[in-house]
Design a protein around this nucleic acid. Sequence first.
DNA 1: GAAGGAGAA
Length: 652
Amino acid sequence: MPHNPDHPPAKKFKPGSPFFRLDKKPGMLLPRKENVSVPIDVQRKNLPIYQAKSQLINQLRQLHNAVLIGETGSGKTTQIPQYLYEAGIARQGIVAVTQPRRVAAISLATRVAEEKRTQLGKLVGYTVRFEDVTSSETKLKFMTDGMLLREAIGDPLLLRYTVVVLDEAHERTVHTDVLFGVVKAAQRKRREQNKVPLKVVRHDSKSTYDDRQDCGCGASVRPEQEAPASHDILVFMTGQEEIEALARTCRDIAKHLPDSCGPMTVIPLYASLPPAQQLRVFQPAPKGCRKVILSTNIAETSITISGIKYVIDTGMVKAKRFNPESGLEVLAVQRVSKAQAWQRAGRAGREDSGSVYRLYTEDEFDNLIPMTVPEIQRCNLASVMLQLLALGIPDVMNFDFMSKPSPGKQQAMRSAVEQLDLLGAVGRKGEQVTLTPLGKKMASFPLEPRYAKTILLSPDFQCSEEVLTIVSLLSVDSVLYNPPARREECLAARKKFTTSEGDHLTLLNIYRAFKKVNANKEWCRENFVNSRNMSMVGEVRAQLREICLKLSMKLESCGSDTGSVRRCLAHGLFVNAAELQPDGSYTALDTHQPVAIHPSSVLFQAKPAYVVFNELLHTSKCYMRDLCLVDADWLVEAAPEYFRRKLRPTKS
DNA sequence: GAAGGAGAA
């Protein structure tokens, strides 16, 4: 049992911390009052971090590395870069502040520029993909961690920067994890070469809820009946299907609520929802009406909704896992970590008091793993390894990753190198792994290695323009909407574009049609096409095309000769090939494991003899997603040695 | 025989 709530430990809330306990009722939180009418420099001085300013500056002057622990709202992300600048610590270069998300980088830069009373892009700027709002004057630069990683390929010593601040490091995204090693290596090399030193500041966030495990374990209360109607509820669930099902149930219930309850509106929230529907979560419910938001983990960090009084946490999350032996990524429902449970709890009562109801017992809570497994231990490392090699890291197998290399990770790294080897991106000199000229070209694309390879192969098949389009379509979020309520309509609309050649060419047809109507929004709505993601395809395509031109590739269109596109895909994706079996099932040629066609594929009801696919997804079955019909001969010509071992003798 | 957690370059 946690401490006796009647005698809370004395240490808990420092003055100025964003929350202090309102009373002894479990889970009650009260925030600092924000006053928008207060002038900006007074607001800055009111931040908790301000009291420590001179001490922080002194420390930062002396230290090469610093870890800063502060609570949400302490002002560390906006103030530290300014302190560094004001103290002249960053005089010889730029202060980079990295963020895992684009919106965060942009909004922080906007805020700091406001505080500095300068135009965004002058002293304070930001860089995210497709958007560079900086100039030669920029000294404080907010950027996505992925962007700094890209920059590091051209400048491994990060010589433009004197300080790198890695914010939200506790989220442990792949990019931040890799950046840690890269920045440390740059720091060391700069010291060795007597260059201007590089400071590294890592921001971490401190949970204010450490000692509150007594709050709300086991949901016995029905907030929807007992609380005032203005109190909104946020429910954390695992996925779209589950959310839509519960939304229907809730709406039914809402029709038959007793008068004492008042009406409620149910709003689903997940990433693949059209933007207009996502925005609904921010609209206040009509007066006297309760807002109930059913959300995936998107509301844990990416979307912050104000006015949430209650959080209901199912304790489950859908997340990727990686099996290094099969090289298979598995999307599976699993328990959240304690850190995640607290993060969810913290989404309630951001402006006022709030509570969390956990749909699991205190015992179950105690048995949760303390921290979420870092993403880098849950994904395919092929792309990461290629990047490290391109950065000129001498010994990639022993790269200084944030987490200690576990046996599992060693295996994951080996299988990643094997994949790169099959793609011709790496060679080996004894124990050392080296990048081939092809691998170097592949690394210059912001893409999964196999897609980069496919693009690089495309000139051989005179279909680069088509392959550029297809790869761009595959590297953004889905351009297709599939609203469950309008399934029939949706299928009918899509029929116009489907081809028995598979999903890649179906997508190409949709893109061509989209271009033909000049990106008409009405056309998008009628055809269940996500116009925002479709526009993104255009931007990605332009970026990839630019890289091709820099590599002096000859870019041609094959027009209606779609066979050459499929042949090119067969050559690029030959590792992901599957063969129809006499019993009508499919077997992956690489691992010989049984696989099935995903129901979202246009080939779902077809029985092609050979296909290549983009990815395997293990949910209820091991599904192939995004399939392309290919000839067995093409696979053999793509990798004769490889397929001599893999193909069934009777077929070839 | 029937389904896609969230990010990012």
